[in-house]
Design a binder for these strands. Structure first.
Lengths: 182, 182
DNA sequence: TGTACATCAGTGAACGCGCGTTCACTGATGTAC
DNA sequence: TGTACATCAGTGAACGCGCGTTCACTGATGTAC
């Protein structure tokens, strides 16, 4: 890829993050291009659809999230590891006015985002199983599955973004929601 | 109010419910008018802004929700009463693709919706306090407040609407979230 | 009860706007010699 | 190393579209006599 092309791609991604953060899902592609200092045609050359743009933005974070999860698999206290990772998921999902949470929950409709969702789910399932194993006597059919757990974490991440900003709220809601976990 | 005016008002409200249910926050006022069989001017005469339309729709449900809460204050098992009412809140908030949940969480920005939010909060606080009182020995500074509780309930109601429809999901998520409540 | 009229709700074409998207043209980059 | 050229990224005016919103006009309703 040509140097200027790569630079423009980065500038578009950066502008898109800013616009999505400012306006959530109502962000405009023309304004993203304008903020990036490129013409709309340039934006389209790099990202044929809005979904491509979102995937590119989200994918970077998801990679980091999965790496974090992998390393937490070696944490001496599995329950704590799970909570720490769920908090990282929530922070990630809070981005861009909760747009990330909304997209990930509806990821089934979008093949590219679906990969992100699958990756998160996989590492989350490992962390949850490891935490569960420590008290195997509690294993019961109805124990929380990773899908419901991630759905709830995404939900509170989104909710925390919808109201006036309160720095402690996300942690309070997460505590409420993960109460009863190993 | 003239008879035909009242009929049109009802038809607009009904069409709006249908359009919001189909398209969430992306519903179009012109299409609502079209579906109702009235001109756009008629819609504007009854509801000068989209917020007015939403408030009118939501307010009806909120009234019923508060009445339900009041009657549940006489329920012999306060904890069960609280859960039952929270489920009713969740069902209400799920309406229109989660738009109701989103609006109620951001209600602070909208005076009219804010009244709905306040009414719900008031009856919820009563139900929660009644449930808490039964085990007063557990009263601790960090016990869940009604605001966080309602936020979480709205959050899961919204989340349940974002994904493919699974009739059991809402109840599972609510159970997860209210685990640890009196 | 019947009729004439004033009121006000309803109409819908039309407006301006910003959106997503296209494409003929320009020009910078990287390469081959 | 220097130069000529082919490639392909960038440009941005322009398009069609559907949106929210307006307003001069029509007509139904309810009332007064």
């Amino acid at each position: 890829m040509r140097i200027d092309a790569r630079q423009n791609r980065e500038r578009v991604l950066s502008a898109a993050r800013a616009e999505f953060t400012a306006h959530g899902g109502a962000a405009s592609l023309n304004k993203i291009a304008q903020r990036a200092g490129v013409g709309p045609g340039t934006l389209y050359r790099h990202f044929p659809s809005l979904a491509d743009l979102l995937v590119a933005i989200i994918a970077e974070d998801v990679t980091a999230l999965c790496a974090r999860g992998e390393s937490l698999l070696g944490h001496p206290r599995p329950g704590e590891a799970l909570r720490e990772w769920l908090r990282a998921v929530a922070v990630h999902s809070s981005a861009m006015r909760g747009l990330v949470a909304a997209e990930l929950l509806g990821a089934a409709q979008n093949p590219a985002l679906s990969d992100c969702h699958t990756a998160i789910r996989a590492i989350g399932a490992k962390l949850l199983r490891r935490a569960d194993d420590l008290r195997a006597e509690d294993l019961r059919p109805g124990r929380t599955g990773i899908d419901d757990l991630l759905t709830v974490v995404n939900a509170v991440a989104w909710a925390a973004e919808q109201t006036a900003h309160d720095p402690d709220r996300l942690d309070r809601l997460l505590a409420l929601v993960t109460r009863g976990l190993p």
